[in-house]
Design a protein around this nucleic acid. Structure first.
Length: 434
RNA sequence: GUGCCUGUAGCUCAAUGGCAGAGCACCUGACUGUGGAUCAGGAUGUUGCGGGUUCGAGCCCCGUCAGGCACCCCA
């Protein structure tokens, strides 16, 4: 091994980072289960053909390889396509609608940057087998509660609909083929501004009048009902767009019913999403503290599972970007600030007191207290305290000759610096109640 | 995958082509049965890696690896 380093775009997560990441995952899991979702885990490796033909142009980013048996394999690109495979494969055993969550790494051969990695962790939640707008609303409500639970103060979920974007293109006199360029252009609105998008539209061959109309539609703003009303009026002669508006209206009304505050979501006609399998609702959550992109994204994909199963199974879901959530939360100082898992550090006064200290550590652990035991009985007490401090332990405990004689323990609170003699028999209760 | 920028001690960064440095962190001690604070001392580098130009390269050139930014796209 000539070079000691990790693969480009793939990271090691040291303990301090892992504590925050585990907090994020545990919180998401808790919220999902509160919504009645059940866990699923599938392999990181799939047959290449399972992933092919589902992602559009992004397919070139798939990690492919051949195994020792000559099988053409691929690392999963997301957890949505594997979900579709699982649903098709176990159709008889699953009770639809099926709500499931899944957590794990996915792989994309992209150029790494801040918030973009080649190995990245996603936490997915999907509702399989329902086309009801209540299903869409449940997913959006879940994500709002999850981001709130993580402590994000000011996120907004942007909602849009595939057929709304399509309707905007059609109403502007463009066919499906030209629509791709339109999606890409309007998606850059927040980055380029109106003038920039117009320039982009003209460059991709859109007529000036159509470009202006697209810009006007895309810039409609306000609360969800107002935006939808305006869109309904302007897209009245496009049947599919009208249906899309009605769908979004049903979803946003359901969000009201589910208790999601109005400032947490908005209908944003400018939101486009690249993944080819989306068919209806699409959404992203953004926060001003993360200008690089979205913290999570998702939507409805009613035809994807049908590519594996014999019939189409309507599904809506989302993926949280754990790495991005982690990066923003670290930047904002959200989440636990602990440097380690230990609460108590049991010192060893000297070789003669080793047995007594081990017994004390055992007792604390039995009481459910995360406890570090000193490993070098001959180490100066000062160094042991220093180790306790640097490991982030809240308490240091000392069992010296005096304490053993009086059947007490010295319990020092490293945060306040206050220490006291505690009855040997009440130590763990004392630590636990602090 | 394309273009641009960057890479020096554990971290943040200095060093006109001329002896590789500072702050923080780290280690030892002052210190008593006790961490953080203060003081005194100490250690630290194949300048990402490999070539080239030069009397001489951290600095210039080529390649490579990694990171960042833009494109593309997304979590």
């Amino acid at each position: 091994m000539a070079t000691i380093q990790n693969i480009k775009g793939m990271r090691d997560h040291l303990p301090q980072a892992m504590l925050l990441r585990q907090h994020i995952v545990a919180t998401l899991q808790q919220v999902c289960e509160r919504y009645g979702f059940d866990p699923l885990q599938s392999p990181v490796v799939e047959y290449a053909e399972v992933l092919e033909g589902k992602l559009g142009d992004d397919e070139k980013l798939i990690y492919r390889f051949e195994d020792h048996g000559g099988r053409q394999l691929a690392l999963r690109y997301d957890q949505t396509v594997p979900l579709a495979r699982v649903v098709a494969q176990y159709a008889g055993q699953l009770v639809l609608p099926w709500r499931r969550y899944a957590y794990g790494p996915s792989y994309r051969g992209e150029r790494p940057a801040r918030g973009r990695y080649r190995e990245f962790y996603q936490f997915d939640a999907d509702i399989v087998g329902s086309s009801s707008p209540l299903a869409d609303a449940e997913i959006v409500a879940l994500l709002c509660e999850a981001l709130s639970a993580l402590g994000f103060p000011d996120f907004v979920t942007m909602l849009n609909h595939r057929q709304l974007i399509g309707g905007i293109a059609r109403t502007s006199g463009l066919d499906e083929a030209a629509a791709g360029g339109v999606y890409r252009a309007i998606d850059k609105f927040d980055k380029l501004g109106a003038a920039g998008v117009q320039e982009e539209l003209l460059r991709s061959g859109v007529a000036p009048r159509a470009a202006e109309q697209i810009l006007a539609l895309v810039q409609i703003e306000g609360d969800a009902p107002a935006v939808l009303e305006e869109l309904a009026a302007r897209l009245a002669n496009d049947e599919r767009a009208v249906a899309a508006v009605a769908n979004l209206r049903a979803i946003s009304e359901a969000l009201v019913g589910l208790g999601i505050p109005a400032e947490r979501y908005t209908v944003a006609p400018r939101l486009a999403r690249g993944l080819a399998y989306y068919t209806g609702l699409v959404f992203e959550a953004i926060t001003p503290h993360w200008p690089e992109g979205s913290l999570l994204g998702g939507g409805r994909y009613d035809e994807l599972i049908g590519q594996f199963a014999k019939r189409s199974i309507p599904t809506v879901g989302l993926a949280f970007g754990i790495d991005r959530l982690h990066d923003v939360m670290e930047q904002l100082g959200l989440g636990p600030q602990a440097t380690g898992t230990a609460v108590a550090f049991v010192t060893i006064f000297g070789p003669e007191q080793t047995q007594a200290s081990m017994a004390l550590a055992r007792e604390l652990r039995a009481a459910g207290i995360n406890t570090l035991l000193c490993l070098e009985p001959t180490t100066a007490l000062g160094k042991q305290f220093k180790e306790a401090d640097r490991k982030g332990a809240r308490f240091a405990l000392v069992l010296g000759p005096d304490e053993l004689a009086r059947d007490t323990v010295v319990l020092k609170d490293l945060r306040t610096g206050v220490q006291e003699h505690v009855e040997r028999s009440s130590v763990s209760a004392k630590v636990r109640s602090s």
